[in-house]
Amino acid sequence: MTIEINGESHELPRDPRVTLLDFVREHLKMTGAKKGCDHGQCGACTMLVNGQRINSCLTLAVMHDGDSVTTIEGIGSPAAMAPLQEAFVKHDGYQCGYCTPGQICSATAMLQEIAAGWPSDATADPTDTPKLTREEVQERMSGNLCRCGAYANIVDAIMEVAEGEAA
């Protein structure tokens, strides 16, 4: 049983108790994704699995045979930052930075979801094509907590990238 993480294939762990988050952090020593609450409440562990964002703390690694996972290490690096990473730096979208990998992974998927026309609870009518507003971004990012309270700047950073893509 294997899993692909950031383009590289890895054997899955034998112990079924190992969560996807612990597998990536403790077994593979990729510590970009963070363990905040370990109960799916904070979003610090957000990864993309087959392109969709999930809480990697609430899924077992053995359940991902054949899946393709992207972590923050697969999105950008200090030398080659992704546009969202650059925007977070520019807008001070963090203070301590602990939630940032999860925020960036989550926002990466979120922009694709809006582009695909997926509605959210902030969309007035589920049949509408959602518009890119601050209210939409706030609702769609509610699974990522920031205890430093950098939310306003996080939304600024995401809006800048989203408007750049739309232009």
């Binding site: 799916g40 979003g43 964002r53």
Partner: peptide, 11 residues
């Protein structure tokens, strides 16, 4: 859409 978060609804 009124429940949970996008990460949770995806699973």
């Amino acid at each position: 859409l009124a429940g949970a978060t996008q990460q949770l609804r995806n699973k």
